[in-house]
C-alpha cells in the first residue's frame, strides 16, 4: 500500500481528484445505459474521456511525483492520447450511425429539421 508518508493536504487533494474522476466515469457509463436515443448516448462516454481521465491522470502524477521525490509526468501522454483519440472515434461512430439510420429510413435527411429528436431505440435490431 502506498501513501503513508504523504502530507495530509496532498492525500486529500489526490483522494478528491480520484473520486471526482471515477465518479464522472461512472456517471458516463450510467448515461450510456439510461439515455434514450443513440445520439444522446453518444455524449455519455465523453465524460469519462475528458475530465474522468484528466482527474485520474492528475492524481496519479501527483501521487507518484510526491512519493518518488522527482517529477513524474509520463501519465500525461495517456491523458493527451485519450482526450484526442476518443473524440475521433466518437465522431466517426456518429457519422456511421447517421449514415446507417438514413439508409434504413429511420430518420429523414441528416438533420434536415434542426432541433428534431431522433429515436434510435425504436429501430429494428441490426
Amino acid at each position: 500500500m502506498s501513501g503513508a508518508d504523504l502530507p495530509l493536504w496532498a492525500a486529500v487533494l489526490i483522494a478528491a481528484l480520484v473520486v471526482i474522476g471515477s465518479t464522472l466515469t461512472l456517471i458516463g457509463a450510467l448515461g450510456l445505459l439510461s439515455l434514450r436515443s443513440f445520439y444522446d448516448r453518444l455524449h455519455a462516454p465523453a465524460l469519462g474521456a475528458s475530465w474522468g481521465t484528466g482527474a485520474v491522470i492528475l492524481a496519479s502524477m501527483a501521487l507518484f511525483s510526491l512519493q518518488g521525490g522527482t517529477l513524474q509526468l509520463h501519465e500525461i501522454i495517456i491523458g493527451v492520447f485519450v482526450m484526442v483519440t476518443t473524440p475521433v472515434a466518437t465522431m466517426i461512430l456518429g457519422r456511421a450511425a447517421l449514415t446507417r439510420d438514413v439508409a434504413d429510413g429511420l430518420i429523414a435527411a441528416p438533420g434536415s429539421e434542426p432541433g428534431s429528436e431522433t429515436g434510435g431505440d425504436q429501430s429494428p435490431p441490426a
Binding site: H43, A46, A49, T86
Partner: peptide, 21 residues
C-alpha cells in the same frame, strides 16, 4: 466532440455547413 454536450456529426464541404448534435 471532446466537450460532452456537443458532438460533431458531419461536414458539408460544398455548403461549408457543419452538423452538430
Amino acid at each position: 466532440t471532446a466537450t460532452p454536450g456537443s458532438a460533431w456529426m458531419s461536414w458539408d464541404e460544398e455548403k461549408g455547413e457543419l452538423l452538430v448534435h
